[in-house]
């Protein structure tokens, strides 16, 4: 092939395609756009339900703090749980914002990145979840009060309490380790696939493409194109 005539060759393809394809554009008048948006609507609903759940949980834990103001154990436990709920809701709001602002006329790399990051949001949510591990005592304190009406901290002797605090401290590096392990690179691992409800391979593919986009975006040192090419 004569490379100097690439564009002419390409135009010949266009001619062939023009001859073999026929667009019936009048049919566009019949398209009902509302019906076509079901897919987006279901994603929006999913996120809206998640946000509502976390906001209600956050509000409930704030209320828990307010109604137990006289006991600092409850205030701290409720505060931690409220904080975690609000962080999770902020993450879900961010996801919803990404979904609602999908616009296929965005520059290709920007849009493809956005689509891929929506697909990988589940990993971010898991990462937020693991940071509750070191704060498990907050759950214990809250559950003890709500279910049994007892102050776990007050009734537990100092040595058992110390062990619980030590365990909490030890769980910080565990949470950090899990945070690191919940890495896009491990999406093909069985355990992560299980956590991701079987969507690991899709996620892996999405992340692979994100990496490709990053590589593609890198501006290499300019290579001069010879005029004669």
């Amino acid at each position: 092939m004569d490379l100097s005539n690439l564009q002419q060759t390409w135009n010949r393809l266009e001619d062939k395609l023009e001859k073999s394809n026929r667009l019936n554009l009048e049919l566009l008048r019949k398209v009902n756009l509302d019906r076509a948006q079901n897919k987006l609507k279901s994603l929006v609903w999913q996120q809206a339900i998640t946000i509502t759940f976390y906001l209600l949980a956050g509000a409930y834990f704030m209320h828990f703090c307010a109604t137990h103001w006289e006991n600092w154990n409850y205030v701290i436990a409720g505060g931690i749980l409220a904080g975690w709920s609000f962080i999770a809701s902020a993450s879900a709001i961010h996801q919803l914002q990404l979904i609602l602002t999908i616009d296929y006329s965005m520059p290709v790399l920007q849009l493809q990145k956005r689509l891929m990051s929506i697909k990988t949001a589940i990993i971010k949510n898991l990462r937020i979840a693991v940071w509750m591990l070191p704060f498990y005592m907050a759950f214990v304190v809250w559950i003890s009060e709500v279910l049994f009406g007892i102050d776990f901290i007050a009734i537990t002797d100092i040595s058992a309490l110390s062990w619980n605090f030590i365990l909490s401290g030890l769980l910080i590096p565990v949470a950090w380790w899990m945070h690191r392990k919940l890495n896009p690179k491990n999406a093909d691992k069985k355990w992560l696939n299980w956590l991701l409800q079987g969507s690991g391979s899709q996620l892996n593919e999405a992340l692979g493409f994100l990496n490709e986009i990053d590589e593609f975006e890198k501006d290499p040192k300019r290579e001069k194109e010879p005029r004669s090419f």
Partner: peptide, 25 residues
Amino acid sequence: PMPENIIQIKTEENEETMDREVAQL
């Protein structure tokens, strides 16, 4: 959901009628 036949593609004309260079490209 879109109306069917918004595009008609005559497949038999695609590869066969393309010259070698076009097919290569």
